[in-house]
Structures are given as C-alpha cells and as structure tokens.
Computed example of a mutant assay.
Amino acid sequence: MTPPTSDTDRGVLSLRLAAIVAVLLGAGVVVGMAVQPDGTTGPSGEDALDRTAERYADADSFVGTVTLDVTVENETDRYERSARAQVQYLAPDGYRIDVLAPDRVANTTVATNGSVAWLDGPTGPPVVRSPNASQSERLDALNVSAAVEKLDANTSVTNRGTATVDGEETYVLDVAYTGATELPDDERYANVSEKLDEIEDTNLTVWVDTDDYRLHKVETVVTGAEGTATTTMRFESFRFDVAIDESTFRPPSDRRVVSGAFDRTSYDTLADADAAVDFAVSEPAVPAGFELQSAVVGTQGDRATVTGVYGNGTAEFLVVQSEQNPLARFDTDGESLTVGNETVTVVERGDTTVLFWEADGRTYGVAGSLGQDRLAEIAEPLVAAN
C-alpha cells in the first residue's frame, strides 16, 4: 500500500521492508554456530569480508539492482514480502534508491546528496528537506556500502568454501555477530519480532565474488519461539566506478516541492498518541482480525498528524487525523462518497483506495487495499465524532 500520510511517513512506511533487512544486516544480532572450513583454499573469512568492505568503501561510484525477499512462517501461517530497487552511489554522499517493485510503491525514489534528502513518488509532489537524525539513519540503512561496513564490524567470519551464484563463483561466508541477542525495540521490526516472539537463533550467510569481492547474496535465517524468518538479498548487475552525474542526486526542479522539518514518534496505543497531541484522536471501526501496529505522531511546527497503522499479517490500512493537510497532494477531482453525514473524496492509486475529508479545521483519511465500501465502514466513527 502506498502510504498517503505525512511527508516523512510516506517514505518511512513505504520502505519498512528494507528497514527490516537493515536490522538483520547491521543491528548486532547474534548469529548461530559458524560452520567450519571445508578445506577450501583462499582467504580467511575475515580477510574476504575485509576485502568486500574495501571494495565498496573505495568505489567512487556504483550502480546495481537489489532484490529482497522476506518470509516469516510458523506451523499455521506464512507471511511473504518482496521488493526490488535500483541503487546508485556517488562518493562521498550521493545515494539514490529507485523502487521497481512491488507495484504499490513502484516509481518511488528516495535520494540524498548529503545536504538534502528527498522523496518522489506517484502519489504527489516531491518532498525535500535537510534530513534529521532519524531520516538519515533510515537512508543509511538502505545504503549498500553502510550495510557492508556493518557486516565487517564486530563479527567473526568463517570461509565455508565456494559456490556458484547466478553463474558466478563466490566465497560462502558464515558471519557471527558479537553484539546483542535481540532485535531492537523499534516499530520498524514489529512484523518480524511479533511473529517470531522470542528470538532464539540467527544465522547469516554472505556470498562474495571470488574475483573482485562484490556482494552476490546475503541470507539471514532468524529462528524464534513461534517460527522462522528468512531474508534474502540479491545484488545483481553491480558496476563500479561508472560515470554518474551529480544531478542524479538532486531533487527535481520542474515540479512543485513540499518542504519542511518533520519529527515523528511512534506509540503502541492510540490513547498514547491522543495524549501527545492537542486534539481528540478518534477510534476507527477496526475490522475483525486487524489490530493496531503503531500510532505515529508527526509534528511540523505546532501542527500534529496522527497516523494509525493497522494490519492482520497480510494486509494493512492507515488512518490519518491531522491538524494540517498531509493529503493535499492528492487530486481533489476524485469521486464523491457519502459516509454518514459527510461527503468524502475518494482517490484510487494503483491497488490503494484513499478516502479523505476535512472537518473542524482538520483533515481525516483512511487508506488501504480493502475496497471502498470496507474503508467507508472503517471511517464511519471518525465522521460521526468530527
């Protein structure tokens, strides 16, 4: 679902899946017992990973495609997500991610030139601002070079041998972290940590090219009390030291731009979010099987936006209640629909339907891929309360 929320949340929620990978690569989870070498000749595991880190750190630029697949499963359920993106890097600070799949976030771009981070997507005008600490952290989480550096820090590595990946010979490295044993307490990893319950074991394997030490694949298997999560990243068609113009990392200049500082805090309950803002936050009609994943309070100046994220393991919908108008980027010539005593605007974006309206100087919205009628039912209590 393409999030129709605040400027910052649009990028954060769209790229949540990539953030899950970031923690598995770089947050310091402990990996299980390393496999002993099988007699292969070649560099030690630590040496191979050091050379991989140097390969990316020394690059003036690179371009490639990253494919991500995540599967969380237990005895009764299976949860799958996938994504594909082109990444471009230009030293020292240029980084760009162009999302290719899934369709709901395709054609979304997140980029930075070091001084400005920006987001551009199919649902509205570009968002441009100087990144705050949280936003910079999320951009770094999607940076291949940063991920490699984290792989190479505080680890012990075993070279298990060689294997062929996509027709290329690679060293197979088992990586064991010496850091913490749990995923961080952060809403970005709730889908993984909640589904697995207690983390019991994590195994991470890295495949690097035997010739030039490019990454070919990273696979993480996290075993918990309630199931297993498998995350696989493939690095395809990477080319180093290619010519990339600096304009690639600058914000678009031919369209209207939304800008401004934005801070966000995530809460576990809607009541906690309500206590953090100066207006009454209403409860939506939550369908059976769905529950609140997080309630995000975003502030821009003295105005606040509350975004409730609800899910059932396979689908999500969002509820926005705001003192500003974060939905203004949507076309206002959408269809009209009567919900209770309110006429709301309906906009379709791919498989996502957005219902939004204004009342008492605030903006309200419900969005998801559940269908217009079901979203209208979810919105009814908000309409009645406001």
Rank of each mutant, 00 (worst) to 15 (best):
Y364M: 08
T205C: 00
T338A: 13
E226V: 00
P92F: 03
G224P: 04
V242R: 15
V346I: 14
R374E: 15
A153V: 13
R255C: 11
L119D: 11
V221W: 04
W118C: 04
S145P: 12
T223P: 04
Y189I: 11
G26Y: 00
A101K: 11
V339L: 14
V218Y: 01
A85F: 08
R104C: 07
D263Y: 04
L13S: 00
V63Y: 07
R129K: 14
P122K: 01
V218K: 00
A163S: 15
L15I: 00
V297W: 05
I199F: 02
A385M: 04
G42Y: 06
A19P: 07
T228Q: 10
A59H: 02
G179I: 08
T155Q: 12
T332P: 12
L327Q: 12
L375D: 00
G26L: 01
T314S: 15
A271M: 02
G308K: 08
G361M: 06
T210V: 09
L151Y: 02
V309E: 14
S193R: 01
S61R: 14
T108E: 06
V128C: 02
A146R: 13
N312F: 01
G368P: 02
S266D: 03
G308T: 14
G368C: 04
E187V: 09
T41P: 06
P43I: 06
A295S: 11
A379M: 09
S115P: 01
F279Q: 05
D360I: 05
D47N: 09
L24S: 11
R78H: 08
A243K: 11
P381W: 00
R250D: 15
A285Y: 01
P131D: 00
G313M: 05
D263N: 07
A376F: 10
L151S: 01
E226K: 00
V105K: 05
S259I: 06
A243F: 09
T112F: 02
A285M: 13
N154I: 01
